[in-house]
Design a protein around this nucleic acid. Structure first.
Length: 260
DNA sequence: ATGGTTGTTGGACAA
C-alpha cells in the first residue's frame, strides 16, 4: 500500500515542529507540500531527510513554494506548470515515484475577483487541464494533489451563500474544475464519500472558524484512471489543525494499492 | 462588524 498526503503548511519554517511530529505519527510514504514560503536552498532538508524522506523542492522567497517528500526515490523532477513562460510563482512540481507520476499543486487563490488575480487563476486551471490531458495520453498512473483553492460543491462549504461570489466558489471556478474532472479524473475524497458534507480541509484563522467548524474543502487529490483503479481510502486528518501553531489547512490522505 | 488572524518582513501584501 502506498499512503500519500497533501498539506498546505503555510510556511514550512513556522510549521516545522508540527510537520515533523505529524510525519512521525502519520508515517505517509509520499507528502505533497504547498506554501512552504521559502527559497529552494532554505528548505529544512536536514530535519526532513532525517526522517527517511527524499525531497524535491520548488521554492521562492516569501510566497508560494511547493515540495514533494517520498520514502522511495524521486525521479524526473519538473518544476513549474507549462504554458506560461512569464509565470514566476513557484506553484507546481511534478516527479516520478515508483511507477506513479505525482504533482504538488498550489493553485492560485484568485481573490479579489475583478483584479488580474482571477484571470490568472482561470488560466492556471486551463494550463493544468492541458497537462492532465498529456498525462492521460501517456497512459500512466498519476496523482495530482494539492491546494486547489476550489470548493467543488455546496456541501464542501459551511455557508455556500456567503461564498457565492468568492474566487474559490463562484460558478466560473466550479465549472473550470468540473472541466478538469470531465477529462476523466477522479476526485479521490468525493469518489469514496459521495454526498458527505462537513468534511473540510481548511478553516480560516479568523473569527473562530476552527472552533465553530466553519470550514471549506479545497485540498484535493485528482487521480488518473490507472491510479483511481488502485484507490482504497481517502481521509482528512483534522488533528494537526487543532494544534498550537497550526496551519490553516489540514492534511488530506489517500491510499493506493501497490501495483501488482 | 468598514471586524477578525497568521506569516513574511520589517510596511504592505497574501491568504
Amino acid at each position: 500500500m502506498l499512503k500519500l498526503a497533501t498539506w498546505n503548511v503555510n510556511s514550512v519554517k513556522a510549521r516545522l515542529p508540527n510537520v515533523l511530529d505529524w510525519l512521525k505519527t502519520a508515517d505517509p510514504d509520499v507528502v505533497l507540500l504547498q506554501e512552504i514560503k521559502c527559497e529552494t536552498g532554505n528548505f529544512p532538508y536536514f530535519e526532513i531527510e532525517g526522517l527517511g524522506y527524499h525531497t524535491a523542492v520548488h521554492g521562492q522567497k516569501s510566497y508560494n513554494g511547493v515540495a514533494i517528500l517520498s520514502k522511495l526515490p524521486i525521479e524526473d523532477v519538473v518544476c513549474g506548470l507549462p504554458g506560461d513562460e512569464f509565470d514566476t510563482h513557484a506553484r507546481y512540481i511534478e516527479a516520478t515515484i515508483g511507477d506513479l507520476r505525482v504533482a504538488s499543486i498550489y493553485l492560485p487563490n484568485g481573490n479579489p475577483v475583478g483584479t488580474d488575480k482571477y484571470p490568472y487563476k482561470l488560466a492556471f486551471m486551463d494550463r493544468l487541464k492541458a497537462r492532465a490531458r498529456q498525462l492521460l495520453a501517456e497512459d500512466r498512473p498519476f496523482a495530482l494533489g494539492g491546494d486547489y483553492n476550489v470548493i467543488p460543491e455546496p456541501i464542501d462549504c459551511y455557508d455556500p451563500k456567503a461564498w457565492e461570489e468568492d474566487a474559490l466558489f463562484r460558478l466560473e471556478t466550479r465549472r473550470k474544475f468540473r472541466e478538469l474532472l470531465n477529462l476523466g479524473l477522479t476526485e479521490a475524497y468525493r469518489a469514496l464519500h459521495p454526498g458527505q458534507g462537513r468534511a473540510y480541509s481548511f478553516w480560516d484563522y479568523q473569527a473562530g472558524c476552527w472552533p465553530l467548524d466553519k470550514g471549506i474543502r479545497i485540498d484535493h487529490f485528482l487521480l488518473g484512471p490507472r491510479a483511481a483503479d488502485r484507490l482504497v481510502s481517502a481521509t482528512i486528518d483534522k488533528e494537526p489543525r487543532g494544534r498550537e501553531k497550526a496551519s490553516d489547512h489540514t492534511p488530506v490522505l489517500i491510499e493506493l494499492e501497490t501495483a501488482g
